[in-house]
């Protein structure tokens, strides 16, 4: 086996969380590190010119921060916040937002309603902090009327959310940012590029020295034993509940919630990693698999995708 010349550590953490850092590595890869979307981000370039790489990295970070600012539900000025505060009135959105909503609508229908960008209101009851605070079933039931993308009036460019409902692009946004940043960098740079935002990644091609070696953290051992994968082209995304679950009376409550009941999907895998044509596609497949619970593996086999499922 080749030496892992172009190794990517999906579980990489910056040593001292620098805002932006460029590093020429010994393996002929220039790495740019920054933080966006509450995740450590890295951009790996098969390049020698540190200055040029730094500029590409800067453009990449700008794009990531732009997407974060525009779509983060935590930022009051984001389009998502504007929509969520609209109290039943229509909001006119730009083309990029419209494309994301279109995508979410498509996924909602393909998953027969299980994937739903309006499910975020359940967070009001569910705090997946590793504790045993399982919510009151009545409180969960009270939120159900506020969930359901079918209640949203979406007629581009106008979205009308019934009062009290909210949307968020969790499960889409970060993967979207990875693909966008990859496209942006690959447009200006001829060599191999890999974009990794906290474990969701995509590459245009393998470096000359061989495919990217990607280490995926195993949820139960946290950074100890890793799955080592090879990636030549496309995206890789992981959905898991390593740090986001509740444990009560020996029952593990996953953060993957069933929008129909408001309760966690039973028997979800600890983590699902999927390789696909793009990070967005890999991400949605991993999410769909998690929603299948005990049927995750058979679902993934049926889709004919490369995947790694850990229970």
């Amino acid at each position: 086996m080749r030496p892992a010349r172009a190794a990517v550590d999906a579980a990489w953490r910056p040593p001292h969380a620098p805002e932006f850092e460029v590093l020429a590595r010994e393996d002929g890869i220039i790495a740019v590190y920054f933080t966006a979307m509450a995740s450590p981000c890295e951009l790996l370039l098969e390049a020698t010119d540190v200055h040029a790489a730094g500029q590409l990295g800067s453009a990449a970070a700008q794009e990531a921060w732009r997407i974060e600012t525009k779509f983060s539900r935590y930022r009051p000025e984001s389009i998502v916040s504007v929509i969520n505060r609209s109290q039943g009135s229509a909001v006119a959105v730009d083309l990029e937002t419209a494309a994301l909503i279109d995508y979410a609508a498509r996924c909602h229908s393909l998953s027969q309603g299980r994937f739903d960008i309006t499910s975020g209101v359940l967070r009001r009851c569910w705090k997946f902090d590793g504790s045993d605070r399982v919510p009151n079933p009545d409180a969960v039931a009270a939120l159900l009327p506020l969930i359901g993308f079918e209640k949203v009036l979406w007629q581009a460019p106008l979205i009308t959310l019934p009062a009290g409902m909210e949307i968020d692009f969790g499960g889409i946004g970060k993967e979207y940012a990875v693909d966008r940043v990859l496209a942006l960098v690959a447009e200006q740079f001829a060599g191999a590029v890999l974009v990794n935002f906290g474990g969701d990644l995509a590459t245009n091609r393998a470096p000359a020295a061989g495919p990217w070696q990607v280490g995926v953290e195993r949820p139960d051992t946290e950074g100890q034993a890793r799955l080592l994968l090879e990636l030549r082209r496309g995206g890789l995304a992981t959905s898991g509940d390593t740090h986001r679950f509740l444990l009560r009376d020996g029952v593990r409550y996953s953060h993957i919630l069933d929008v129909r009941t408001g309760w966690p999907v039973p028997a979800v895998p600890r983590s699902v990693t999927v390789a696909a044509g793009s990070c967005v596609e890999a991400g949605i497949l991993a999410t769909f698999a998690m929603l299948q619970g005990s049927a995750a593996e058979s679902f993934l086999i049926e889709q004919g995708v490369q995947h790694w499922c850990l229970r």
Partner: peptide, 15 residues
């Protein structure tokens, strides 16, 4: 899903 992902990534490239 592939079609939807492609649509998202190509339409926003224009947007």
């Amino acid at each position: 899903l592939m079609a939807a992902s492609c649509a998202l990534l190509s339409s926003t490239a224009r947007a």
